[in-house]
Structures are given as structure tokens and as C-alpha cells.
Design a protein around this nucleic acid. Structure first.
Length: 199
DNA sequence: ATTAAGATTTACT
DNA sequence: GTAAATCTTAATG
């Protein structure tokens, strides 16, 4: 096991990858709704041009804070995305929660999402945050334990059940397979088009 | 102060 | 499958 930089260049062996993989299978308890994470994306700091932490800003300041904290940001102004800050303070590492399966509060989540499809309940970052009832009020919330939204680590998944692939919506460094999802989970969607494709 | 870009979702065809 | 809507944040003059 190679600690060498791999054939793909810098960041191929980044510690955030292991943390993102560890988040798969964990259960995120939100406002009356619990979701088992099935798809996540790893984002590093200065080493990742696609990360919000690439440049130090008030918005990404939370990413440089202590771990196990919730980072919520707005995407395209209308939707919210939930992230979990990982790593030691100052590293600026975070993991984006892209999708998951609702294991509790199914009815409540269905009411919020206005859909009865359990597969679509938490498919997509914005939907995941919406289904959990997360908002900017939960920004920086401690995920270490109740009563507020908290993250319960699950059992480590077999390596064979975890697949990796290129990230979505990232205009740069898409060659890095920093996106992890659970194999065979219907809540995980396939590759999507890139945002705002040039004419 | 203004311009540009973006970690998306939903609806319609 | 394709197209459009929506808001914030970041950078620049």
C-alpha cells in the first residue's frame, strides 16, 4: 500500500477519501427524519480546486473549523446542500452528502418532498437537506450527539460494496474519483450532465 | 459597485 | 432528454 502519489497526481491518496468512505452507511438524524447515507463526495482544501475551501472565505470558514460539524450552503440559490466537516481543524476538509435512504420519518420526509417515492426522497444534495428539514439555522451544528441534528456512524461497509467515480457538477479535477456510493443502492443516481454547459 | 460563475432541481417535450 | 429558473458568493475596477 502505497503511500506514493499514485499515477494520477496530487491528492490521489488524500486522507479525506478514507473519511468519506467511512461516512457511507452512517445515519444522519435530522429534524424528525433519519437518513442513511448512500452517496457522498469528498472535498479537500487547498489541494482541491473544486472545493469551496480552495479559497478562504466566510462561507467556507466553517470547513476550516472543528470536525463533526454541519456545513450547509446554498446551491443555485434555491436548494440547500449538507456537508460534514471532517479532519482536524484548519485542514478545510469536508464531505458532501449527495444522497441517502430515509430510514426514519419516512412520512414526514415524503410530506416535505411532496413525493411518495422512497427512492427520490433523498436523491440529490438539495433534496437530502430538504427531506431532513435542514436549514441555515443548522449551520455549524454539532453532529456529535443529540438533541440537535447528529450523525451516527455506522458499521464499516465492505470494500467491495463501495464504488468510486468522478464527481458531479465539478468543472475541474473531475478526473479524480472522489465520489463514493454504495453499490446496488437505488437511491444513487448515475452521472449527470455538467452545470451550465456552454452553447 | 458591478460582473461572472456555480457542489442543482423541476418541468415540459 | 432538453431547457429554463433561481440566489448567493467571490472576484475585480
Amino acid at each position: 500500500m502505497p503511500e506514493t502519489s499514485g499515477p494520477d497526481g496530487p491528492g490521489a491518496d488524500h486522507p479525506v477519501l478514507a473519511e468519506a468512505r467511512a461516512l457511507l452507511g452512517a445515519v444522519l438524524h435530522g429534524h424528525g427524519v433519519s437518513v442513511r447515507l448512500s452517496e457522498v463526495e469528498a472535498y479537500a482544501g487547498p489541494d482541491d480546486p473544486a472545493s469551496h475551501a480552495f479559497t478562504r472565505t466566510p462561507r467556507s470558514a466553517i470547513m476550516y473549523g472543528p470536525a463533526m460539524r454541519l456545513y450547509v450552503y446554498r446551491s443555485y440559490g434555491i436548494h440547500l446542500c449538507a456537508n460534514v466537516v471532517t479532519g482536524p481543524e484548519g485542514e478545510g476538509r469536508a464531505v458532501l452528502l449527495r444522497a441517502g435512504e430515509v430510514v426514519r420519518g419516512h412520512e414526514l420526509a415524503a410530506g416535505r418532498r411532496r413525493t411518495d417515492d422512497p427512492v427520490r426522497l433523498a436523491r440529490g444534495p438539495g433534496n437530502l437537506a430538504s427531506a431532513l428539514g435542514l436549514g441555515l439555522e443548522d449551520l455549524g451544528a454539532d453532529l456529535q450527539g443529540p438533541p440537535e441534528p447528529w450523525l451516527e456512524p455506522g458499521e464499516p461497509l465492505p470494500d467491495a460494496s463501495v464504488l468510486a467515480g468522478p464527481r458531479v457538477g465539478v468543472s475541474r479535477a473531475e478526473e479524480r474519483p472522489w465520489r463514493f456510493w454504495v453499490a446496488g443502492d437505488p437511491t444513487v443516481s448515475a452521472y449527470r450532465r455538467s452545470p451550465r454547459a456552454p452553447s
